[in-house]
Design a protein around this nucleic acid. Sequence first.
DNA 1: ACATCAATTCGATAGTTGTCGAAACGTCGA
DNA 2: TCGACGTTTCGACAACTATCGAATTGATGT
Lengths: 115, 115
Amino acid sequence: MASTKPETKSTPAARPVRLTRAQRSAILKALADPKRFELLETIARSQCPLGCTAAHEALSIAPATLSHHIKELQTSGLIDVRREGKFAFLSIKPGVLEALSAYLQSLSPTACPTR
Amino acid sequence: MASTKPETKSTPAARPVRLTRAQRSAILKALADPKRFELLETIARSQCPLGCTAAHEALSIAPATLSHHIKELQTSGLIDVRREGKFAFLSIKPGVLEALSAYLQSLSPTACPTR
DNA sequence: ACATCAATTCGATAGTTGTCGAAACGTCGA
DNA sequence: TCGACGTTTCGACAACTATCGAATTGATGT
């Protein structure tokens, strides 16, 4: 199967990133754990690709637990994991948080008059 | 100095609704359960104050479970519960979803150049 | 080849929680 | 007062999961 073009790179324009119900569920579950959310915040606040070691130091949890959380964030589609030799670098997957954010906002309707 | 303005009640204009870390955690945990999220969606989609009976029919879960989920959404600060006689009416608490949404969006930084 | 280090996998455990049936509570109409 | 109905509480169970130590894998440098 010949690939038409490499899409792992920075595509010029924005992409809507449509989320299915199942994806939303998975993402919310991934965000629900405090340690995992903190990890995501750490990744977001870092320049961009955060090393596992830095993450481990920032969260003060066992390596095994960190690895578990990373996999959860990855399988839920929230982050990308790039492996380079014996290191792993974490980065926020673009568009996903925006999509979730937009959907949540859409749930807040114009306040009902009969309140 | 002090006395910028008291904003505890339903101010006509916008309300910032600042969320603490603990509140964010609680809200995300409340949203993480699929049935609970579906309940919130149902409330949001209804005119506004949704009766428990309607919710029960929409979700097809036992009354006890529904009551449990309602309490979770309420204690997390996502919904208001107004009681009227033997009925209970659910409505989305204004500002909370917007605040969470804004925070999530703020985590998505400008994509890192070294990707 | 060997030792070292980063990261993952495995196995186990403790705590959490979604679910429901049954009982209880409160309200309303007869 | 009584019974019917909506909702909540209680108790229990099953499933899930966050956590870690120990062992493993894989890559790097000597």
